[in-house]
């Protein structure tokens, strides 16, 4: 266990840049498509759907870090999680911006009405709002200021973001639910892996507590 391969800090930094480059590729494709006019008959719809899709994909990738660390035995993956979370937030910002701008043209009164009226907008907007404090507290200073436990509790909000994000997609489609349900299944799997992890952890702790009890100690001593 102890002699596992660990990337150097420099290697981790390089991986972060690679992730940023990789997650920006679809943006390059969208910008090129917009300039060349190759986004199809309804380019704004294409941009809206694409930014939404990549937000969900990046969120799933971010939430995959914890189970992968455990199952794959790659604890160092944790050092990439903040980058992935911020990339999720960046795509969410682009997605929200396409809505505020191309769909509503920054008519804020109209936007407020729309958020109240349409459930899929309500869910999507709530998910976006919940992401803001998570992104804002992503710095080391913020973690120190909040304290690890409180920071952790705040960041549990990411699970609500995932649920709201999928609800946003489910309530958007007219009839064909297959694609949103794929995302629902992926998040359900990621949640299930976490719950399994928590249960395992709880069992281990209970076992440790038992073996650490005075009686057990005395038995051991004999």
């Amino acid at each position: 266990m102890s002699e596992r391969w660990q990337p150097s800090p420099r290697a981790v930094q390089r991986m972060r840049w690679a992730l940023i480059a990789l997650a920006s590729l679809p943006l390059g494709r969208l910008v090129a498509g917009a300039v060349l006019g190759t986004l199809g008959a309804n380019p704004i719809e294409a941009v809206t759907h694409s930014t939404g899709t990549w937000t969900l994909v990046m969120l799933a990738v971010t939430l995959a870090v914890t189970p992968l660390r455990r199952l794959g035995g790659w604890p160092w993956l944790l050092r990439l999680r903040r980058t992935l979370g911020l990339l999720t937030f960046a795509w969410a910002c682009l997605h929200a911006l396409t809505y505020f701008w191309f769909d509503r043209f920054f008519d804020w009164a109209d936007i407020v009405r729309d958020i109240g009226k349409r459930p899929f907008i309500t869910a999507g907007f709530a998910a976006f709002v919940l992401l803001v404090p998570l992104a804002a507290t992503s710095t080391n200073a913020a973690i120190r200021w909040l304290g690890g436990r409180r920071w952790q509790r705040l960041h549990y909000a990411v699970y609500a973001v995932a649920v709201l994000g999928v609800a946003h997609f489910v309530w958007l489609v007219k009839k064909d639910l297959r694609e949103p349900l794929i995302y629902a299944a992926v998040f359900a799997l990621l949640f299930a892996l976490r719950i399994a992890g928590w249960l395992q952890e709880a069992r281990r702790r209970a076992r440790d507590a038992k073996s650490a009890s005075p009686l057990a100690m005395r038995r051991k001593a004999f």
Binding site: A41, N42, I44, E45, D103, F105, R118, W171
Partner: peptide
């Protein structure tokens, strides 16, 4: 309104504004 989207405006394909 359609329950899940507004019918007040529309995007004519090929146009930027609504």
């Amino acid at each position: 309104d359609h329950p899940r989207w507004s019918q007040a405006s529309e995007r004519r394909l090929g146009e930027f504004g609504k």
